[in-house]
Design a protein around this nucleic acid. Structure first.
Length: 182
DNA sequence: AGCACGATGCTCT
DNA sequence: GAGCATCGTGCTT
């Protein structure tokens, strides 16, 4: 079972979409090669009031895509060397996106960390602003994965202490962890 | 296992 | 000009 996630999937509350993205696949087709990662960790940035979000200062050239319609990629550059990939959620005009932070390859290797993930899938500025459809070469898929053997862990978001107590402590980081571990 | 730090450049003030 | 939704290395406990 392989179903490309359609735009309406992303046109729902950001936290709902974030939760449902776990266990789905981020698929990359690049220079004739196809690679896929099962998503195991995501982070939500939700709305204009979210002080941890890039949209906290309103529309800028960089954040415009976050204000656009759902189902588009928001790719940005940070720390002088790293690309981060997000999928835009919510209606046009409402700035929200989900950062994809980790995933697992078919042979069970965990790609942990948003910069490693983009490096692995060769995602750069080229993908910024593109829709999550096959023609882009980067899209999301439901492969009917059974995630019953995992449990959902919620933690605070990484590296956003500047956002103040309220927003820095929101449990907007969601990840899958294998049961019977720890 | 837990810091501290450097790399390196875009984005916004 | 400062700060950054990070990572890897190399040090200290």
């Amino acid at each position: 079972m392989r179903k490309t996630l359609p735009a309406p999937f992303f046109d729902r509350p950001t936290l709902t979409v974030a939760k449902e993205l776990l266990g789905k696949y981020l698929v990359r087709e690049y220079q004739g090669q196809t690679a896929a990662l099962m998503i195991t960790e995501v982070e939500a940035y939700d709305g204009p009031k979210d002080l941890a979000s890039h949209a906290r200062r309103g529309i800028t050239p960089r954040t415009t895509i976050m204000y656009g319609p759902p189902g588009y990629f928001y790719v940005y550059f940070t720390y002088g060397m790293h690309w981060m990939v997000n999928i835009v959620t919510g209606k046009k005009g409402y700035p929200a996106a989900i950062l994809i932070r980790a995933g697992m390859t078919d042979d069970g290797a965990l790609i942990k960390g948003p910069a490693r993930l983009t490096k692995h899938l060769k995602i750069t500025k080229n993908e910024n602003g593109k829709p999550a459809v096959k023609a882009t070469g980067l899209w999301l898929e439901d492969r009917g994965t059974d995630i019953k053997s995992y449990r959902l862990i919620k933690t605070k978001r990484i590296g956003v202490d500047y956002a103040g107590e309220i927003w820095a402590n929101k449990l907007y980081n969601l990840s899958l962890v294998l049961k019977n571990k720890n």
